[in-house]
Design a protein around this nucleic acid. Structure first.
Length: 299
DNA sequence: TTTTATACGCTGGTTACATCA
DNA sequence: GGTGATGTAACCAGCGTATAA
């Protein structure tokens, strides 16, 4: 069934939930960060999809137990009955009347999937849909809710909608869009991270190739042999003839001098990385706390 | 037990309006 | 006031999962 990103080994998972049904949609899965990243966005919260909704239901049985509803009187009626009058559904909102194509197009279609969509368009006889701009207060409450849970179960959605004077569908859409924004932002961060990694590896590769050239020169110049570092500082792998320089004998940054003696230089990626010499971890940019760790977003 | 239909929620992508420089 | 860029509410299509028949 579903594979956790940990199971995948690599998993680029740009901070999206491991159990998400749309794992096939994930464009990348390269776990570049600790799974704890962006806890507010999704990784933890979205695991509730379907399976854990019951736990939310339990929470909702006692509204006061819902973290994100702190200070919200769930029993209080919305400022307006949103299902009847969208124009006043959000007293604090900026509402503008539109007459664009969207309004015309939406009229019959309305529901994307959920049954609650139905109530989104049944409100008035006016065929035009009002485009609503959420107020700052509404957005703030939604943001707070999102920090607690990036997904909502139906009860939470309904409670939040009532509290904010919005339709449940609006709350649902807001969360969907918010998740999309979060993911987009994370993708941007990860792209930047990969870019830095690529640059760093390129530089490392350049440096190592230069080092190989120097070592070859030394090997071909007996007069310099005597000046070489004592062989005890080098470790030769008997199976592959690679020379690994102990960290103590290397200059900073740590070097992986996994160089096949007498052969042409090999690209770093795909060879050294795949090699069994775990010394590669010394410069493993994916490693937690690695050189680019500073780029990781803080949750 | 397996298959099928249905409901539901999610994502990625898109559209169109609101706002701002 | 007109215009392009940006943000975002709302939507659609497609998919996976849960559930009941």
């Amino acid at each position: 069934m579903m594979l956790d990103k940990e199971d995948l080994g690599l998993s680029l998972s740009l901070s999206f939930p491991p159990h998400h049904p749309h794992h096939h949609h994930a464009p990348l899965h390269l776990n570049l960060m600790p799974s704890s990243v962006s806890s507010s966005s999704s990784s933890a919260a979205v695991t509730n999809h379907k399976s854990s909704s019951s736990s939310y239901a339990d929470l909702n049985s006692d509204p006061t137990a819902i973290p994100f509803l702190r200070g919200i009187d769930v029993n209080r009626l919305p400022a307006a009955d949103c299902d009847e009058e969208p124009g006043v559904s959000s007293p604090n909102s900026t509402v503008s009347s539109i007459s664009g194509k969207r309004s015309e197009r939406d009229q019959p279609a309305t529901t994307g999937s959920g049954g609650e969509d139905l109530d989104a368009d049944e409100e008035d006889g006016d065929t035009s849909r009002k485009k609503l701009r959420l107020s700052k207060d509404q957005s703030a409450v939604l943001e707070d809710s999102f920090k607690e849970h990036s997904t909502l179960n139906p009860k939470q959605k309904t409670a939040l909608a009532k509290q904010l004077g919005l339709r449940p569908r609006q709350v649902e859409v807001w969360f969907q869009n918010r998740r999309a924004r979060t993911k987009l932002k994370q993708t941007e961060v990860d792209c930047e991270f990969l870019k830095r990694c690529c640059e760093n590896l390129t530089e490392e590769n350049r440096r190592l190739q230069k080092e190989v050239q120097e070592l070859r020169a030394l090997k071909l110049s007996p007069q310099f042999y005597m000046q070489m570092t004592p062989p005890t500082t080098l470790t030769m792998c008997p199976s592959c003839e690679r020379v690994a320089v102990p960290p103590s004998s290397t200059s900073s940054p740590p070097v992986v001098a996994a160089t096949r003696v007498g052969s042409s230089p090999l690209p770093m990626m795909g060879t050294a990385a795949a090699h069994h010499h775990r010394s590669m971890a010394a410069i493993n940019p994916w490693a937690v706390g690695g050189p680019f760790n500073v780029l990781r977003p803080r949750s």
